[in-house]
């Protein structure tokens, strides 16, 4: 149970960064940390005590494997998170090129 709570604390650090910081790059860093926390939570749910990795070997019979389904879901989510992070970085670099700053409070021209 306390492992889940530590994972939630990690998610909350990312959430605090998204809500509180004014710098666009800092907001992207918060999004990345929150993604790590969610991936870690799904992998923690799949773990089983005394379990083996879900790969068969030719000479021995393995019965106690960990849950393979959340691992398969996380595997696609990791690559998608990289692509969305790159999209955020592209938008942030465009903002810097147009306004000369990363600070979202100084970008008054975004209004209207």
């Amino acid at each position: 149970m306390s492992v889940y709570l530590l994972c939630l604390v990690l998610f909350c650090v990312g959430l605090y960064c998204i809500l509180r910081k004014r710098n666009v790059i800092k907001i992207i860093v918060g999004v990345v940390i929150a993604e790590y926390a969610v991936n870690l939570f799904l992998a923690l749910v799949a773990y089983r005590f005394e379990g083996r990795a879900p790969i068969f070997s030719p000479d021995q019979k393995i019965l106690n494997m960990v849950d393979a389904l959340p691992q398969a879901l996380v595997l696609t989510a990791i690559v998608i998170s990289l692509a969305t992070t790159a999209l955020l970085v592209g938008i942030a670099m465009r903002i810097y090129e147009k306004y000369g700053t990363f600070d979202i409070t100084k970008i008054k021209e975004l209004k209207g």
Partner: peptide, 20 residues
């Protein structure tokens, strides 16, 4: 799909930096 897509992303970001 994944390799060419991620390399295209990298190329786009790097070339934007060069032009700036």
């Amino acid at each position: 799909k994944v390799g060419a897509g991620l390399f295209a992303i990298f190329l786009a970001l790097v070339l934007l930096k060069f032009e700036a």
